[in-house]
């Protein structure tokens, strides 16, 4: 497996780029890249030349996460002012503006069926699930305090929820916390199942394998990528190599490779069977906050965004 740089756009945003996702193709247009930035805008790019297809304002204090609906028609962005803005990708019309005070909003993800939007709720120690038809909250998945909590554990702030992921069948939601715990929920019954331990530093990104529904990948500030069997509650493996925090993880659609973005300014490609890095891309000059494989289809594409204000596109083969 191999990555080859295709195109990079310097100064794609006016400030650090913090989020990236692929918007699936519709009948009228190909799939697009959606990026969010500290400059309070969300921008659309058309591959492979990364032609700017629009700049959308309406966010305050920096966009921390973006997610696209599987239909490719709508997308959502979460910003530091704790609003989620749902908008029409092609017209930039606001579809809904979501908030659930006092819970902040961090990573957000639509379920594969497109019926729900899960939002990592920060200090509320919960994941909020919104119905994409009515835009009502249908579930609050709260993380129970772990048993045998030491009295010295000061607060629930330790279970600050940063990241969220859906299993490919949409039946499981996993979320990552500041203290490194990963919590697994039954999505249908809105029920907490169990914790996965192993990290003791923030888990800012996690993703299920599209091929093996039980296999969960997590990236943490502890510089490691872990592979968990989310059902069997086992740590299958740990991969080290980054010199800094792992800020973002994504799995290729064939399930064979994992890409990570790190504060060490690199993008790494990992061979799951070898449990080791096979390639390191050093084109960014600052933290790499987001990596995203284009879902489905050939040719494979990987995008990365960075604090250096640039976005990069690679061929994955």
């Amino acid at each position: 497996m191999k990555l080859a740089g295709l195109k990079s756009i310097e100064d794609a945003h006016d400030e650090s780029v913090w989020a990236v996702t692929w918007v699936p193709a519709t009948e009228s247009r190909p799939s697009l890249l959606l990026t969010g930035s500290l400059d309070e805008t969300v921008r659309l790019w058309q591959p492979d030349e990364l032609v700017n297809r629009g700049k959308m304002t309406g966010h305050c204090l920096g966009v921390a996460s973006v997610a696209a609906h599987p239909s490719g028609r709508i997308a959502a962005s979460a910003s530091l002012d704790s609003f989620v803005r749902v908008f029409d990708v092609d017209t930039n019309n606001t579809v809904a503006s979501l908030e659930a005070p006092p819970s902040e909003v961090w990573q957000l993800r639509f379920n594969p069926q497109g019926t729900m939007l899960a939002v990592a709720g920060g200090g509320s120690a919960s994941v909020k699930v919104w119905d994409t038809a009515t835009w009502d909250i249908v579930a609050t998945l709260s993380i129970p305090r772990p048993e045998g909590t030491k009295p010295t554990d000061k607060s629930s702030s330790k279970k600050f929820v940063l990241s969220v992921a859906w299993s490919p069948d949409g039946r499981r939601i996993a979320c990552g916390s500041m203290d490194g715990t990963v919590s697994v929920f039954d999505a249908d019954r809105a029920k907490f199942l169990h914790h996965l331990e192993g990290h003791f530093m923030p888990v800012r990104s996690l993703v299920f394998s599209p091929v093996e529904p039980r296999l969960l990948f997590t990236g943490s500030d502890d510089t490691h990528v872990h592979m968990y069997d989310a059902e069997g509650k086992t740590l299958v493996g740990a991969m080290s190599g980054h010199a800094g925090w792992v800020l973002s993880v994504d799995v290729s659609s064939d399930g064979a490779a994992v890409a990570t973005g790190s504060s060490d300014r690199t993008v790494r490609l990992w061979d799951i069977s070898m449990r080791g890095a096979v390639q390191t891309m050093s084109n960014h000059t600052d933290q790499v906050w987001g990596v995203a494989f284009r879902p489905g289809g050939m040719p494979g594409r990987l995008a990365s965004v960075s604090d250096d204000k640039s976005i990069s596109l690679y061929d994955y083969s």
Partner: peptide, 17 residues
């Protein structure tokens, strides 16, 4: 050379990692 990797361990017992 990464030919041998440690087996899976209980994710609630990572204290012994």
């Amino acid at each position: 050379d990464g030919k041998e990797n440690p087996p899976s361990i209980d994710a609630n017992a990572t204290i012994s990692q």
